[in-house]
Design a protein around this nucleic acid. Structure first.
Lengths: 320, 320
DNA sequence: TTGAAAGCGGTACCAC
DNA sequence: GTGGTACCGCTTTCAA
């Protein structure tokens, strides 16, 4: 085509508002440049950051993302999968918003469409899984308290049938061991994941003959309850005792004092899941294993590491 | 086809894992049963609930949802729109995560694809818009404090160049007027949307010759700061003073005392936007106007209305 | 009722 | 290069 002819075509495209029909293109080339994201949770606080990075990874490669909510129901998940496959998506991410959840790994034939599990794992089917490194997180939080000079560090843990609880405990023990500190079972308490438990267990710990000089909580909700107990007992945080939570929830920066917390690497996890999926779509060999992404520590006032410097939870920053 | 033949076909479908190709179907029928959702925010806290209800409304009608993040950038928004149109979406929702934002209503020819604006409005193009009723919310929060017997109700407001601030003030004044209470300009303070402002302005209010017996804050961040000031001054909430926030953010139930708040009807807004769009897609006449969805009040301890009964923010409940 | 054929809007491959 | 044609998989129409 001559240069001037090309010019005229482009002109016409602009004038007539011509847009190539991707549907026809997809039909012919039999791939859609689209991935499906099925989540079981669009209420909680963990899925947002993962969604954001998945969308980012996909967009960067020219892929679109179908967002589907299964509400944790098998039937809805299957229905969504059927639709996604009928719509010929190039790949699928199954994202969970809860820690432990039986998705019962779809026993469906997905027709060879690549799948990645996010924030959950399965042994039922050979797929790559991306989850947080809870053990490393447990180690990180404990080590930080040790580095601050704390020596009697208590752990308020979640229910032990959660693997997250088991791993966080393991990390806690590891950190103590690495520092040459003794492991005192009396300093480890287990409850539910809520504030009520944090409150009650903190009370228990503080009435011990030799109370702890730091409390590491396996969730921010537990930590919120612990802070309540400390406030009630007029024990100053972080002067008298350091507190560190886990999960870096939205409210942790709004605690008094602002709560230091081990952050789940949600954004990075979504990014990794997206990358793994997109590579698989492009035919790269998939590394079928459980990818554990390291947690990070968000330092605020409750651990005693900071005086002025404050890490933001989100857009907002804390004064004083 | 005979009954037995039908049987055999269904059997074969099951055995061969046949799935009809929606892409081919869409090409032939020239509609895709898919809508696009473009948001400028996948970080904040307002978009989640809207996304959820949009997905719900769409799913219920057999529609899939493309999720796109523009990061508030015009160029990305245009790029996403181009892709969505090329992919022949049946309709588009433009959702904002911020209160006031110039999206500059795409001056693009969308080829007649129906559009709904969500959490923002525009006069630039004739489209239906769905936003919260900020004035009603201002009225609601103030009226509640009046009903609790408060008579000197202060308002800590956001910057007045935000329409939300103007409307919430209007609602506040309306409620006072309806109750026959005087409007005292000294009780109205304006700052930024953050805690720092809430803290400082609450201090100002409480050093007035006749301090207020209630503070209505135009955001939960402002309220968090106000609670800090009250705590510092050892003024008991809600015995000595009632506090009500606005937005019902994730952290409001984690304040001490748990913060009552005027909740944005995010879920309902998403649902309405979805319904409007789906109706438009099905050819129903669109009501091109600004739909203002009423706010609701979430009662917690800080207003003094409750002693035991606690309203949950999300899954979590408060003890005591 | 059933079967054959055209066509949706692109892409890919062919011969020229 | 360039123009013609088959084809992706489904819907629709028309004929048998």
């Amino acid at each position: 085509m001559s240069e001037s002819a090309r010019q005229r075509v482009l002109e016409a495209i602009g004038k007539l508002n011509y847009r190539p029909n991707t549907i026809a293109r997809s039909l012919r080339k039999s791939h859609t440049v689209t991935i499906g994201l099925i989540t079981d949770d669009l209420e909680g606080v963990f899925t947002m950051a993962m969604m954001r990075s998945i969308e980012e990874a996909a967009s960067a490669c020219g892929f679109s993302v179908f967002l589907c909510n299964s509400y944790g129901e098998m039937s809805r998940e299957r229905a969504h999968l059927e639709v996604l496959l009928a719509k010929q998506v190039s790949g699928i991410i199954l994202m969970s918003g809860y820690k432990v959840r039986e998705r019962g790994a779809p026993a469906m034939d997905l027709g060879g469409v690549p799948v990645v599990y996010l924030y959950q794992y399965t042994w039922d089917v050979p797929v790559p899984c991306v989850i947080p490194d809870d053990e490393g997180g447990g180690n990180l939080g404990t080590k930080h308290l040790i580095d601050l000079g704390r020596r009697r560090i208590a752990l308020i843990n979640g229910p032990m049938h959660f693997e997250a609880s088991q791993l966080r405990l393991l990390g806690y023990q590891q950190a103590l061991k690495n520092a040459g500190l003794p492991f005192d079972p009396a300093l480890v308490r287990t409850g539910k994941w809520n504030e009520q438990s944090g409150y009650e267990l903190a009370h228990e710990l503080l009435t011990l003959p030799t109370p702890p000089d730091a409390i590491f909580c396996a969730s921010d909700s537990l930590a919120a309850g612990a802070l309540d107990a400390l406030h009630e007992l007029q024990i100053h945080v972080p002067k008298d005792i350091s507190v560190v939570g886990f999960d870096n929830r939205y409210f942790s920066g709004y605690q008094r004092p602002p709560l230091s917390s081990v952050a789940l690497p949600l954004y990075e996890m979504g990014l990794l899941a997206g990358e793994i999926l997109l590579n698989a779509i492009q035919g790269a060999p998939v590394n079928v294993k459980i990818h554990r992404v390291p947690c990070t520590l968000v330092k605020r006032k409750s651990c005693g590491a900071l005086s002025d410097q404050i890490a933001p939870v989100h857009q907002e920053r804390r004064y004083s």
